[in-house]
Amino acid sequence: MNVLILCTGNSCRSILGEATFNHLAPEGWHAMSAGSKPAGYIHPRSLALLAREGISTEGYHSKSWDNLPVTPDIVITVCGSAAGEECPAYLGPVMRAHWGVEDPGHVTGTEEVIEASFMHAYRTLRARIEAFFALPLEELKKDPARMKVELDRIGTLQA
């Protein structure tokens, strides 16, 4: 099963989600990420955080949803709402869920405040990904309605 983690810039949240998902994924599950308006780079704080967590960043880059290597089975949007951010609407016959996380790349303030915002985004995404992998996934693949309910429920979890 292929999961697309989608946001606007594909430089912070979706990259954190993609790398964490693939780090934790059981066989047969793979994440990719993309942006509707890709920044063209991965935020250095995202790379540093993933490295500190022991998660490989090799091969990851900011990319457009126009150039996906495969059609996803599930699309998870991770854009936040505090800044009035619009979530991109992926077009296609796929299951969709929203796991909103505020964008740490736009946080200003002290080093501690900025670093805390990246860690909060990471912890929130990781908690949701771990909750997803704790589900009976083989059963849920055969029951799309139940899968959708679980994806939506997970999107409300906080770190």
Rank of each mutant, 00 (worst) to 15 (best):
G80N: 11
A83H: 09
T110F: 00
A116L: 05
Y90S: 06
C79W: 03
E112S: 12
A116Y: 00
K63W: 03
C87A: 14
G109W: 04
A89H: 03
A116T: 02
L68D: 07
V78Q: 07
N67F: 14
W65F: 11
H98D: 01
S81E: 08
V78N: 05
C87M: 04
E112M: 06
D66T: 11
I74G: 04
V75K: 04
H61M: 13
V78A: 00
S64M: 09
E102I: 02
Y90D: 09
A83W: 04
E115P: 02
T108Y: 01
G109T: 10
W99I: 01
C79H: 04
P72W: 01
V101T: 02
W65M: 15
A116E: 03
P104L: 06
V78P: 01
Y60D: 11
H98R: 02
S64A: 14
G105S: 13
Y60S: 12
V94I: 07
I76R: 06
Y90P: 04
V101L: 04
N67T: 15
I76M: 08
S62T: 14
S64H: 11
A83Q: 13
V70C: 10
A116V: 00
H61S: 15
G92A: 07
I76A: 05
T71I: 01
P88G: 12
G84M: 05
M95Q: 10
L68C: 06
W65K: 10
E85C: 13
G105D: 12
P93Q: 10
T110P: 02
A89R: 08
G100M: 07
R96C: 02
L68R: 02
A89K: 09
H61Q: 15
D73L: 05
W65D: 07
E58G: 13
L91S: 12
E112N: 05
N67I: 13
E112G: 00
C79K: 03
S81P: 00
P104H: 07
Y60P: 11
G105Q: 13
G105I: 06
D103C: 12
V113A: 13
E58D: 15
V113T: 12
H106W: 14
T77G: 13
H106N: 06
V107M: 09
A97Y: 02
H98L: 00
P72Y: 07
T110C: 01
V75Y: 05
S81G: 02
W65E: 15
S62G: 14
A97S: 10
M95K: 01
D66L: 14
T71F: 03
E112V: 06
S81I: 13
G59C: 13
